[in-house]
């Protein structure tokens, strides 16, 4: 399984580089799908089939569909791509990239310090995950339910199209003047 891991992680890194350098949002999203699917294969090779299935269903399915719907609703096309091309100059991305590369080098040095340990080849089955999820983690599952509920209510409230959002102190009342 190690060859599968190396190939899929290489594909994931390559696709992610393509995501952050594209100008057109739709192209970036399609490379993001490739990146998520490659990470799902990585999960599978690490012995986590449940996480791999969730990655495909939720990330590459639901979240990407949300993004694509919003990009289509906003009608971002050629203009956005040209605007991005104007924004992504060398002097814009050179500084942050160098800083971030320094951080990455430090992290790699720290990770290479201890003795290397091999990953076990055994699989953590969905049965173990779900027994633990609905056993000791049940309170966290309920809290995640609250979080998703607030997410739905917040999105529905914010997404409403109102004419103008004025603070109540700034509103002029017709009966006062």
């Amino acid at each position: 399984m190690s060859l599968v891991f190396y190939i899929s992680s290489f594909v994931a890194i390559l696709a992610t580089i393509m995501v952050i350098t594209r100008h057109d949002p739709i192209h970036a999203l399609l490379y993001l799908v490739a990146s998520f699917l490659a990470i799902a294969v990585t999960f599978l090779s690490l012995g986590a089939p449940f996480a791999a299935a969730l990655e495909v269903i939720v990330y590459a399915g639901a979240i990407i569909v949300l993004f694509i719907f919003v990009v289509m609703m906003l009608n971002l096309g050629k203009e956005t791509a040209n605007q991005e091309k104007g924004w992504l100059r060398l002097r814009v991305w050179l500084g942050p990239s160098i800083l971030v590369l320094v951080l990455l080098a430090e992290m790699i040095v720290v990770l290479l310090q201890p003795q290397p340990t091999a990953m076990p080849a055994a699989v953590v089955t969905p049965r173990e995950v779900s027994l633990s999820l609905y056993g000791e983690y049940i309170i966290a599952v309920e809290l995640v339910g609250f979080l998703l509920m607030t997410g739905i209510v917040g999105a529905a409230h914010i997404g409403k199209h109102k004419k103008k959002n004025l603070h109540r102190y700034l509103q002029t009342y017709p009966n006062l003047n």
Binding site: Y6, V19, I20, V92, M107, I108, T117, M119
Partner: peptide, 26 residues
């Protein structure tokens, strides 16, 4: 596969995302 290899891959992906947040304006 060694454990630090997987963590290095995760670190590279995280850093790529961080670079995206820092450089993009959209």
């Amino acid at each position: 596969v060694h454990a630090h290899t997987v963590l290095i891959v995760a670190a590279i992906l995280f850093v790529l995302g961080l670079a995206g947040v820092l450089t993009r304006k959209n």
